[in-house]
Amino acid sequence: MFEARVAQAEILKKILDSVRELVEQGNLDCSGTGISLQAMDSSHVSLVALLLKSEGFERYRCDRSINLGINMQSLGKIVKTAGNHDAITLSSEDKGDVLGLMFESTEQDKVSNYEIKLMDVDAEQLAIPVAEYSVCVRMPSAEFARITRDLSTIGDSVLISCTKDGVQFSTTGDTGSGSIVLRQSSSVDDEKKAVVIEVQEPISLSFATKFLVQFSKSAALNESVTLNLGDGVPLMVEYPMKEMGYVRFYLAPKLSN
């Protein structure tokens, strides 16, 4: 028996919104420690890794580990019908063929029940090695969204160059070019608005703009985002979710032929 209850539907809505455009279907791996999802986009350029820790749920029970193969679009559509403050309980029998969803309004005067058919998702599980990153940039997630959107009007790849002085995002396209530099915040009252740049070694890497734009749509998950860059490893973009876990996006770089 698997059962997980979140107090507020809002967080699940945000999580599903952040992954469902990149990932069509995936296996929710449910175990005693929580729920995780790992899935690549259809072109196998990026990978989403989601972790929802059991402590982040109001109630959590998972007697034995199970894989729930889910169409993310279908799940997203159903969860969207819940009120933001509704409690949501996900459930599945050990050998069940559906994922049950129960929404309860705060006044407990409305209860909605849905079932989604489970599917066989043939997803390769990839091992993500612990990487040594040369650069870690923390910045407001809204700023990251703005920058990627602005540069996407010009070019289909973005060069991210980082030194201890700042991080530069630049692009070139048929119509011209553009670049945006962010400097480390000198003093900020609000931690979440800060730009913090940690550099072991300066680095310059190119990435496909459209994926950065996709990732940056997760801004609702956290006011801050971290970009982790290293030579010879994919970019890792992380949106932490307080006690709940995280959504991480990995993106393979563009390499010189």
């Binding site: 196998h44 990978l47 990839l126 091992a127 994919p234 563009k254 390499l255």
Partner: peptide, 14 residues
Amino acid sequence: KKGQASITSFFKKS
């Protein structure tokens, strides 16, 4: 001109 690498060339099957 740069080519797009695949994520599977960095992360192997577990």
